[in-house]
Structures are given as structure tokens and as C-alpha cells.
Design a protein around this nucleic acid. Structure first.
Length: 449
RNA sequence: GGCGGCGUAGCCAAGUGGUAAGGCCGAGGUCUGCAAAACCUCUACCCCCAGUUCGAAUCUGGGCGCCGCCUCCA
């Protein structure tokens, strides 16, 4: 069985073969840091974390590079509004990114790259593109000439003429073609700038990812990923400038995740309908949110709903219970069904990282584990492949008061004073949020949220 | 207008040619002092119409409804 993934470049599922055996060079487009991350970001980073973990599980060494766009118009605007230095603003939101995303059990990237640390590499690339006639100077700007890249539109399947006829041409625009995009942008007064052969300015958005991906991973990488909305123009432009510069294919596989929608609309910064990750994490723990996001195949739209999120929390708790309750040490003998289900799990993951299906398999396995008390270690291992079952051994404690109530209830129950024991059980549940379960091995307590 | 995607049970959601995974909710049951947890059982004319095929949720054509990209957005 071999690993297949949907390459949005071809629009088809393809067998995954890395350029160098056992190594995957993976570049993921990060965020522009001028605001807090929302659920759309959460989905992208959780999805590709899942992809990365599975590749690692299959034995690949994954070099995972992710950027922060820490200079751009919106950052400058926000910083200006806040009367703040743009660097302070971007730093603040980079920190916020880590705070939020870490709580979703996303592994840290092998390398995080900040756009402003790669000005030199970007300028080198721009110079090269000007020299080869792929870019031109227009006032203080440098633009990429789309018409000189014959394959423009090959990723997003757009036809250049259609694109151009759809664009409003602004008379003041110095671009030769309306589809051309800016590689270097002249600084207006009061804007941050870097010195360059073309005057004071800052890099355009697209050039950073090309420069950073190449610097960190090489001219041709294995996987380049991001949200569906980045396909055009961002990734299309990355291809155009990178391939014009090197003459080589930029990325072998392109992966794009589907949107998170809310009220049937895309959740986005510009529509102002986004829900911040940190706000959701007030209501539900990070692993539950992660689980919720993984329950829909990564390419499909995910319609966010709070009841759905609560449902995920509840069902994840069942999986966690099983792994906590049953012996997780490896045993040589376990039911045949477990082996079969493990294969089914891998088949699902091999088929374009279908975590949604794989989770279904986990629930089938759950039943076997709960009925036979065997195979919990396999369930645990597979859940961990998806980044689940974190902090299982974190021991919770209850106050002395609750401890005493539990003890009193046990005494009442032992002396068959059921009225009193039930009263105490209800009190613990309703007043203290602690639910008791009488099992063969004595009473267990559990917090309910 | 161009390009792409989606429509599966009360809700969420896999499945892309072999006769519908899984979760939540609901009903019944086993266990339990009663519960809880766990387990068992039950719940789908796969948006509509036509076609291809021995066989279609899956392929083709035509509808209807919804969404996305084409401007910054994961």
C-alpha cells in the first residue's frame, strides 16, 4: 500500500514519492501577523500538522518550514492606528500565534522564517529576475511580468487573458499588464523601508515565500501547502517567480486545505465573521478542538458549529477514557480485530490523509478495546499519530471537601443507606461538577464541564 | 462571465463502479441497590431527471440548490 495525496497542481491523487528518499521538504505558508488567529488558521495548521505527523510516522524525516509575514500593508496600517512600531505589533502576534497553536498540539516547525530576516535573499532574487527580463522597474516599484512566464495560471487553472479582462485597469498604475504583481514596493513617507538598488522600499508579499522556501529547503521542494485561498494569486505567483528564477520546478506537490465556514460563508478576516482560537478555547480544550477539525477530510469545507464542537469533545472523551482505563502496555497477544483495524487505519491515512475516516476506525477499535480490554496500546499509538491522547497521565485532584464528600458517600453506600448516598452523589454532580462511577475496582470520579 | 467544489439518516460526516464507515442525539435491552460508564440491538428510497453498465451514492448528460477563487485573506 502506498501513500497517495491530492496534488492540487494536477487536481488528482498521486502516489507520494519524495525527491530524496526518506526526506520530505515541506513548506507551509504561515500567517500575516497583524491579528489573532481564527479557526480558519487553526484548521490549516492542524491539518498540515496531521499530514506532517503521518509522514514522520511513515519514516520520513520531515523538514518543516513555516513563515511569518511580518511586514505588509496591513501590519503597517494596524501599527500606525495603534501608535505602535510595526515590529512590536508583528512580534506580539507571532507570540499570540504560538500561544494559540501550541494549545492545539501542533508540533513546532523545524524552522520558522520571518520575512524581514530574508530581505537580502529576496533582493537577490529580484535582481536575478530583472536581469533575465522577468521583472521590470516601474517607478520605485519592481514588478514581475506575467506575460513572460508562459505557464502562468497552471496551478490555479486560470487563463491569463481571462484574468486580465476581469481586472480593472487603473490609469495611474505603472504595471505593464494588470496581472503583473509587485516584487518590491516603494516606501511612502513614514513607512518602514529597506535600502535597495531600486530605492527605499519593502518586499511584496509573494516573493518572501519563494526566497525563504528556497533558502531553507532548496530550489525544488517536495510539498508546498496552505489554505485554498492562497492558491491564487499567492501560490501562482510563487511558481511564476521561482521557476522563472531557477528554471526548475518549484514544488513537486501542492496541497490546499478547505475553508472553515460559518453560516455557510467562508470565515475570513475580511468578512469579519471569524472566531478566534483563543475564544473557542475558553469553551473547549485544545485537543477537542483539534479532534473536531480533524473529523472532516482536510480538503472539504468544514461548517463550524458550537454544538458540533461539543459533540466532538464528548466523543473524544470516550476514546480517551478507553486509553486511560485499559492497560496500555504492549502485549504480545491481542485480538485479530485490532490488527485488522490497524491496517484499516493506515489504508485511510494512506488515501490522502483521510483522518476523518481514520477516526472512524478508531471508534471501531474502541469497541474492541472496551469489550476485550486488549489492544489499548494500539489505539493509543494510532491516536497519537493524529496528535491525540495528549496529557493522559495528568492527574487531576479534587479539594479536601470533595474528597470528604466522596468518602461520606462511600460509607453511606456501604451501609446501604442509598437515599443518603444518592443525595451525596447528586450534590457532587450538581454543586461540584464531579460525576461518580461505581465500577468493579471501586468508585471513580470525573469532572464534567 | 471564467475556473473549481459541494448536496449522503434528526444533526455532523466517510465512502468515487460491487450493493451505504463512524460520531452525536433518540428508542429498546444487558450490567448496576439505583445510576453512570461500557456493551448489544434498532433508525438512509445517498437533491431531482435521463443515460452507460450484469451492477451507480460513485461514471456521463441535463436540471435545482449552495459555496469558493478570479482583490488582502489559512
Amino acid at each position: 500500500m502506498s501513500l497517495q495525496l491530492t496534488n492540487t497542481f494536477s487536481g488528482k491523487k498521486e502516489k507520494f514519492v519524495s525527491l530524496v528518499p526518506n526526506l520530505v521538504r515541506f513548506y507551509l505558508c504561515g500567517v500575516t501577523v497583524y491579528d489573532y488567529c481564527h479557526l480558519g488558521h487553526a484548521r490549516a495548521y492542524v491539518s498540515f500538522d496531521m499530514v506532517r505527523r503521518y509522514l514522520m510516522h511513515r519514516g520520513y524525516d520531515v523538514k518543516f518550514v513555516q513563515n511569518f509575514t511580518d511586514i505588509d500593508d496591513k501590519i503597517i496600517k494596524r501599527a500606525h492606528e495603534a501608535g505602535q512600531d510595526y515590529q512590536a505589533l508583528s512580534k506580539q502576534f507571532i507570540e499570540a500565534y504560538h500561544e494559540d497553536i501550541d494549545r492545539l498540539f501542533v508540533l513546532p516547525a523545524t524552522l520558522y522564517t520571518n520575512a524581514t530576516d530574508y530581505i537580502v535573499q529576496m533582493q537577490d532574487m529580484i535582481e536575478g529576475l530583472i536581469a533575465s527580463g522577468h521583472a521590470y522597474i516601474a517607478g520605485g516599484d519592481v514588478c514581475f511580468s506575467v506575460e513572460n512566464f508562459k505557464e502562468y495560471g497552471k496551478l490555479s487553472k486560470k487563463v491569463l487573458d481571462d484574468l486580465i479582462s476581469n481586472m480593472r485597469v487603473e490609469s495611474s498604475d505603472a504595471k505593464r499588464s494588470p496581472a503583473d504583481f509587485v516584487l518590491w514596493k516603494a516606501a511612502k513617507p513614514d513607512e518602514p523601508f529597506w535600502e535597495s538598488p531600486w530605492g527605499k522600499g519593502r518586499p511584496g508579499w509573494h516573493i518572501e515565500c519563494s526566497a525563504m522556501a528556497m533558502d531553507a529547503l532548496g530550489e525544488t521542494i517536495d510539498i508546498h501547502a496552505g489554505g485554498e485561498d492562497l492558491m491564487f494569486p499567492h501560490h501562482e505567483n510563487e511558481i511564476a517567480q521561482s521557476e522563472s528564477f531557477t528554471g526548475k520546478r518549484f514544488a513537486k506537490y501542492w496541497m490546499h486545505n478547505g475553508f472553515v465556514t460559518i453560516n455557510h460563508e467562508k470565515m475570513s478576516k475580511s468578512l469579519h465573521n471569524f472566531i478566534r482560537i483563543r475564544d473557542v478555547l475558553e469553551k473547549v480544550d485544545g485537543e477537542s478542538l483539534r479532534f473536531y477539525l480533524l473529523r472532516v477530510q482536510y480538503r472539504n469545507p468544514l461548517h463550524f458549529s458550537e454544538p458540533g464542537l461539543k459533540e466532538s469533545q464528548q466523543s473524544l472523551a470516550r476514546l480517551r477514557e478507553a486509553v486511560i482505563t485499559h492497560d496500555r502496555s504492549e502485549t504480545p497477544n491481542f485480538p485479530e480485530a485490532i490488527t485488522h483495524l490497524k491496517e484499516k487505519f493506515y489504508a485511510a491515512m494512506d488515501d490522502d490523509f483521510n483522518a476523518a475516516e481514520a477516526i472512524g476506525v478508531l471508534f471501531e477499535m474502541l469497541r474492541v478495546v472496551n469489550t476485550t480490554s486488549q489492544g489499548a496500546h494500539v489505539l493509543y499509538e494510532l491516536g497519537q499519530v493524529l496528535g491525540l491522547f495528549n496529557d493522559l497521565d495528568k492527574t487531576e485532584s479534587v479539594s479536601d471537601e470533595i474528597e470528604a464528600l466522596i468518602e461520606a458517600r462511600q460509607q453511606a453506600r456501604a451501609s446501604k443507606n442509598f437515599a443518603e448516598s444518592d443525595r451525596l452523589r447528586d450534590e457532587l454532580r450538581d454543586v461540584h461538577g464531579v460525576v461518580l462511577e461505581d465500577g468493579a475496582g471501586g468508585v471513580r470520579w470525573k469532572r464534567v464541564g
